[in-house]
């Protein structure tokens, strides 16, 4: 049984259908990417998995539990942490308070100090800035805080929505290194990225999403070799 499994998932906004019959799975310990052009529905896909958007049709199971129709705060409790597009930090709260909110769940609260030490070890810059307001951090630091905040809930699956968005090229490389380290810690990752070349180096498998449908699926190396993906997204 896969850790995360979507079959025939359809959702949308009002009369507009943004995802059609999406099937996707993520195995334990795997890193999977979803790539696709702007407006393809990548963010929508992560939002439907984390319960921010309701599933209109199809099934969504996580570790055997049916999650379709569960609100976001219950989905987190099952072990899915979502790092949303644009980070969505609490800007006037300090770095430490943002991390504290990541551990809001009862089971995470019990291990708060221990998880915090792990997050600070992974992102030492956050420890240095712990009393600073989140809004005053640089873009890269904010992304680290958003990922650290997600780790605070002690998830089994992390959803990352365009972690490299708005970052300078040097920072993008550093951030991918950090995500690689998060992976090595044993977390399962589902990541959405525009930076196709970088993300295909990071993940095991990838899906290509276009206008709300999965168009292609394969091992990262194979997809990288496909002429179509190279031309359209990698820019070679």
């Amino acid at each position: 049984m896969s850790l995360l499994e979507l079959t025939g998932v359809t959702t949308g906004y009002g009369h507009f259908t943004a995802l059609w019959d999406v099937g996707l799975r993520v195995e334990r310990g795997e890193a999977v990417a979803v790539v696709g052009p702007n407006g393809a529905g990548k963010t929508t896909l992560l939002r439907v998995i984390s319960g921010v958007l309701p599933v209109r049709a199809g099934t969504l199971t996580f570790d055997g539990a049916a999650l379709a129709g569960r609100p976001a705060h219950e989905v987190v409790a099952h072990g899915i942490a979502h790092v949303p597009e644009g980070r969505r930090l609490f800007p006037t709260l300090t770095v430490a308070d943002n991390l504290k909110m990541g551990a809001y769940l009862g089971r995470a609260r019990k291990h708060y100090a221990e998880t915090l030490a792990r997050v600070y070890a992974l992102f030492p810059v956050l420890a240095e800035r712990r009393t600073q307001r989140a809004g005053s951090l640089s873009g890269g630091e904010q992304q680290m805080l958003a990922i650290g905040r997600a780790l605070m809930s002690r998830p089994r699956l992390i959803l990352l929505d365009e972690p490299s968005m708005g970052l300078a090229p040097v920072m993008v490389l550093r951030l991918f290194d950090l995500i690689r380290r998060v992976r090595e810690e044993g977390y399962t990752i589902l990541v959405v990225e525009q930076n196709v070349r970088q993300v295909l180096k990071l993940v095991d498998r990838a899906y290509l999403l276009e206008v709300g449908r999965i168009k292609m699926e394969g091992r990262a190396a194979e997809l990288n070799d496909q002429d179509f993906v190279r031309k359209a997204y990698v820019g070679l």
């Binding site: 705060h73 609490f90 909110m101 809930s153």
Partner: peptide, 24 residues
């Protein structure tokens, strides 16, 4: 406190606080 900090956090971003596991 966790709850008090969550009250301040919800006032900034209700949806994000839901993603933290809090029922708004």
């Amino acid at each position: 406190t966790f709850v008090g900090t969550a009250i301040r956090a919800v006032s900034q971003d209700r949806e994000a606080m839901g993603l933290m596991g809090a029922n708004p």
